[in-house]
């Protein structure tokens, strides 16, 4: 294992820790808004994991997955927030 691979492996562990912390906030989150915020953060972390995996897998095809995922998760979060805004009465 070269030094670069070692650093990438370390980065993967840090990404995993970030995902687990976000998941913990999702599970603990006292109310739905906290869960929504945790989801928003987790989707962006997942986008960067997908970009990272595209670099591992050596193919630019997987970048499209990251792009579509980032854009559509944003649309989903916005729609859920709009439902909260109009539907709380």
């Amino acid at each position: 294992m070269t030094l670069a691979q070692g650093i990438q492996f370390l980065a993967l562990f840090v990404f995993a820790a970030a995902t687990l912390l976000g998941l913990l906030r999702f599970l603990l989150g006292p109310a739905t808004p906290d869960r929504l915020v945790a989801t928003d953060t987790l989707t962006v972390v997942a986008t960067s994991i997908l970009v990272f995996m595209a670099a591992f897998l050596d193919s630019a095809l997987y970048l499209d997955v990251a792009l579509v995922y980032g854009v559509l998760a944003f649309v989903g979060v916005i729609a859920l927030a709009r439902i909260i805004e109009t539907g709380h009465k």
């Binding site: 650093i7 980065a11 840090v14 990404f15 820790a17 970030a18 912390l21 960067s48 990272f52 670099a55």
Partner: peptide, 15 residues
């Protein structure tokens, strides 16, 4: 790889 590690650290800080 170092840049990716820094990015991962910032993601961790956010979480």
């Amino acid at each position: 790889s170092l840049f990716i590690l820094v990015g991962a650290l910032f993601c961790f800080l956010g979480a």
